[in-house]
């Protein structure tokens, strides 16, 4: 009998991921059978398991291109980019990037942005809990001193800006509401917040995502307004704040003394 050598798991994994490669040496099925069919069970478990995981994380994307296309695209992603941790709810952080450079998906130009929104929804779901500022607390802020104040946003807050109406697309597919025509002639900026146990997905007025990103960078309200209106002169601060208040996106407002 030969001494046991270390089992080459790297080679095993390479063969799992590439069906063109031969089955690794040293494997046996039951008497008289070749191990290929058995190895295929593991190949299949890995591939289908991860493709299913992406299908669950990106249900609207799946509907947008159909199951067959989505699964074929997801297989390509899985082979290139396996999860880095066993926390599958985190899988797909660069799926939107992959989709945007995936040639066959070109004719669905909003797909990558919807993927980014779906990933944000998942991140928001699992984000840290925190009690947002109530309307009463917001009302009690010293309004005339807020230009220099900074804000802390709820840890579940995400924004995704798109030149396509991604919030409308996403809502329609989440609510089975297929009634009205949806024109693709305008963009939307999605705000995702989970202040309690339910996720809010709303569209911010134009410039809203730049405003939120500036606040997230630690800029004061005054600077954040400049950042937003610098990019979109028609930025409507009141409408933007209203949306953020309703979504309960503020955790704290720090007024300097």
């Amino acid at each position: 009998m030969t001494a046991s050598v270390d089992f080459d798991q790297g080679a095993f994994v390479r063969a799992l991921l590439d069906p063109e490669l031969p089955t690794p040496n040293g494997l046996e099925a039951r008497r008289g059978l070749q191990p290929e069919r058995r190895f295929a069970v593991y190949r299949n478990n890995v591939c289908v398991g991860l493709v299913d995981a992406l299908a669950e994380r990106f249900p609207v994307c799946r509907q947008l291109v159909g199951d067959e296309f989505f699964r074929a695209m997801a297989r390509c992603y899985v082979r290139d980019l396996l999860p880095r941790t066993p926390m599958l709810f985190d899988y797909g952080n660069d799926f939107a990037d992959f989709v945007s450079s995936f040639e066959p998906a070109r004719e669905v130009p909003y797909l990558a942005d919807v993927a980014q929104l779906e990933y944000a929804v998942g991140q928001s779901y699992h984000a840290e809990n925190a009690a947002p500022l109530s309307m009463d607390a917001l009302r009690a802020l010293p309004f005339d001193r807020l230009a220099g104040a900074t804000a802390e946003l709820h840890p579940s807050t995400h924004v995704v800006a798109s030149q396509y109406p991604i919030v409308s697309i996403w809502r329609r597919h989440m609510s089975d509401d297929d009634a009205a025509q949806l024109e693709l002639d305008h963009g939307e900026e999605a705000l995702v917040v989970r202040p309690h146990l339910t996720i809010n997905v709303t569209a911010l007025p134009v410039g809203g995502s730049a405003f939120v990103r500036a606040l997230e960078r630690g800029e004061a309200f005054g600077q954040a307004v400049d950042a937003a209106s610098g990019l979109t002169p028609e930025f409507d601060l009141t409408a933007c704040l209203q949306a953020l208040f309703l979504a309960e996106a503020f955790l704290a407002v720090n007024v300097s003394h």
Partner: peptide, 28 residues
Amino acid sequence: AGPGTSCAGTSKTDYQGGAWKYVPKGTC
């Protein structure tokens, strides 16, 4: 919630690569 982990296998066969032959077929 997104995907959960599984300690099970699957009987749904779908791992072969092959040439790209799909077109997007949205349901909406």
